[in-house]
């Protein structure tokens, strides 16, 4: 697919999804109300407040999270040269889930100095586990991708077992399982304006940097040995990918929970549609990841109003059949 029509299509889809997302909610609204809320905001109106302070940040969080996860998946798939890699390869999801659930299960306080701790602990858990996984894969001055893959899988399994044990031992009320499920599957209901700048800045920075490193990423897909002989400085690129992917994923997961399959599916879809070596792949991955998360959140809200299904369930149900269709068509190969 060519770039200009692709950009037009993405713009159109994003516009439609944002428009629909702003339209749907508990208050009955039409486009004239949305227009007034956005351009002639009345602080006394609950409808205006809902549009500007609840719906809009939720839509933006969905877009940024989807973009960040898809971006991380794209980079990690290239780095370990494995089509099954996803943003949680480095143990980010299980680290975040364990961090948040330590609070939710009562092993750590829920609030500390007035700060709601689960997202903070999720961010800390994600980064700590990523650091341990990378350390395990670090040998003789290099990060070994196969070691990284195995260390990530092993540590994730261990942390999941720890979480199961803590859940079993927990004496907290049965209702805390609702929080645990919500944190394990992910969602955008808690979106607030104050949360968005950090994720937006991280995503913008890493997207810009890696858009310029497109050629190096393509070389990486050829395999380590060929990339090395073509002059690629593997070590530096791997560290760059690790830092960018773990930061983007940890920030997204801390705000939205570990939403599944976006980071696995979207990069494959982008490569299938635009080709493995297309220069704007990174940008399209972020954009499409954002649109995908927006669409899934919209479906989640429509399926089970008012709070919506946890969006991670929808991303799986929508994404996997699409992914299987891609495989069935057999016109796409990884790497």
């Amino acid at each position: 697919m060519k770039v200009a029509p692709a950009v037009s299509l993405l713009l159109l889809t994003t516009g439609a999804l944002l428009g629909l997302g702003l339209l749907i909610g508990s208050f009955k609204t039409d486009f004239s109300v949305i227009q007034r809320a956005l351009f002639h905001y009345d602080a006394g109106s609950s409808v205006h407040y809902a549009i500007v302070h609840l719906r809009l940040p939720r839509l933006l969080l969905a877009f940024l999270t989807g973009g960040a996860l898809a971006f991380s998946g794209y980079l990690l798939q290239a780095m370990v040269n494995n089509p099954l890699a996803d943003p949680y390869l480095l143990g980010t999801a299980s680290g975040a889930a364990l961090g948040a659930n330590l609070c939710l299960l009562g092993f750590l306080p829920i609030h500390f100095l007035g700060v709601y701790l689960p997202p903070v602990m999720a961010f800390a858990g994600a980064l700590v586990v990523t650091f341990v996984v990378v350390s395990l894969a670090y040998q003789q001055g290099q990060v070994i991708p196969s070691q990284l893959l195995l260390a990530g899988v092993a540590l994730s399994s261990l942390l999941t077992a720890c979480l199961s044990l803590l859940t079993f031992l927990s004496e907290s009320e049965g209702q805390s399982f609702r929080s645990i499920v919500a944190w394990t599957i992910g969602g955008f209901e808690r979106a607030q304006w104050a949360d968005l700048p950090a994720l937006a800045l991280v995503l913008l920075a890493v997207t810009l940097v890696f858009s310029f490193l497109h050629k190096q990423l393509t070389l990486l897909l050829l395999g380590e040995s060929r990339a090395y002989h073509l002059g690629l400085r593997l070590g530096r690129l791997r560290w760059g990918i690790l830092v960018a992917a773990s930061l983007a994923t940890a920030t997204a997961v801390a705000l939205s929970g570990p939403i599944g399959f976006v980071g696995l599916l979207v990069p494959h879809f982008v490569r299938a549609v635009f080709g493995v070596t297309s220069p704007p792949n990174i940008l399209f991955t972020v954009w499409l990841g954002g649109n995908f998360a927006l669409a899934c959140d919209l479906i989640a809200r429509l399926l089970l109003p008012p709070a919506g299904l946890p969006v991670g369930i929808v991303t799986s149900f929508v994404g996997i059949p699409f992914f299987l269709y891609l495989l069935w068509k057999k016109n796409y190969r990884f790497g």
């Binding site: 909610g25 508990s26 208050f27 609950s46 407040y49 809902a50 609840l54 719906r55 609702r178 209901e189 109003p305 008012p306 709070a307 919506g308």
Partner: peptide, 13 residues
């Protein structure tokens, strides 16, 4: 015991 969104609660007021 339904799950509610913030917007729904604002509407209930």
């Amino acid at each position: 015991y339904p799950a509610l969104s913030r917007e729904y609660i604002l509407r209930l007021n």
